[in-house]
């Protein structure tokens, strides 16, 4: 075990990690931040996406030790300072962009990364960017609409072909 320290959602946190401790396990089991989910073991599903030093990464495919000293942002830190939902979270609720909620933390974190890179993405760009986030409930329809809305764009009932 070694001590690993990182700044999580703006606050310094530290805990014990073995070499093999994944960042996702460190967040969930060591720090109790269970909003980050694990839905696969092959780095495909994206339920575990967090931001490390501002970049979206799959926290199940990174060792906690690799994030030692890093800035880490998770779903628990996304709401506004007053506790209200941020623009992306609110859009997901407004457009019914989630059902069971399990993939949702990763979707929100990926959407945040996308909008940082590309503030006004097209429908096709949104779909392409989400290729590392699997949702089994929504058919992605309302997730795409939510992200269009979060970027301030008009949201058609059904997008043009």
């Amino acid at each position: 075990m070694t001590k690993v320290t990182m700044t999580i959602n703006g606050k310094p946190r530290s805990g014990d990690a073995e070499g093999r401790t994944l960042l996702s396990s460190f967040l969930r089991d060591e720090l109790g931040l269970t909003g980050t989910h694990v839905g696969c073991d092959t780095s495909q599903c994206g339920a575990c996406v967090v931001h490390v030093n501002g970049k979206a990464v799959k926290s199940c495919t990174m060792f906690a030790a690799e994030a030692d000293g890093a800035e880490v942002d998770t779903i628990e830190g996304q709401a506004n300072a007053d506790g209200s939902l941020n623009v992306i979270q609110q859009a997901f609720q407004d457009y019914h962009g989630l059902q069971c909620g399990f993939c949702t933390p990763g979707m929100v974190m990926s959407a945040a990364a996308l909008l940082k890179e590309n503030p006004i993405p097209s429908e096709a760009e949104i779909r392409h960017y989400l290729e590392g986030n699997i949702c089994r409930c929504t058919g992605y329809h309302n997730i795409v609409r939510a992200i269009l809305a979060a970027s301030g764009q008009d949201v058609p009932a059904v997008a043009a072909e």
Binding site: T34, G35, T74, I75, E76, L85, Q89, Q93, L98, T104
Partner: peptide, 8 residues
């Protein structure tokens, strides 16, 4: 949705 969107 609120709890699912905030990781709670």
């Amino acid at each position: 949705d609120v709890r699912f969107l905030t990781g709670t």
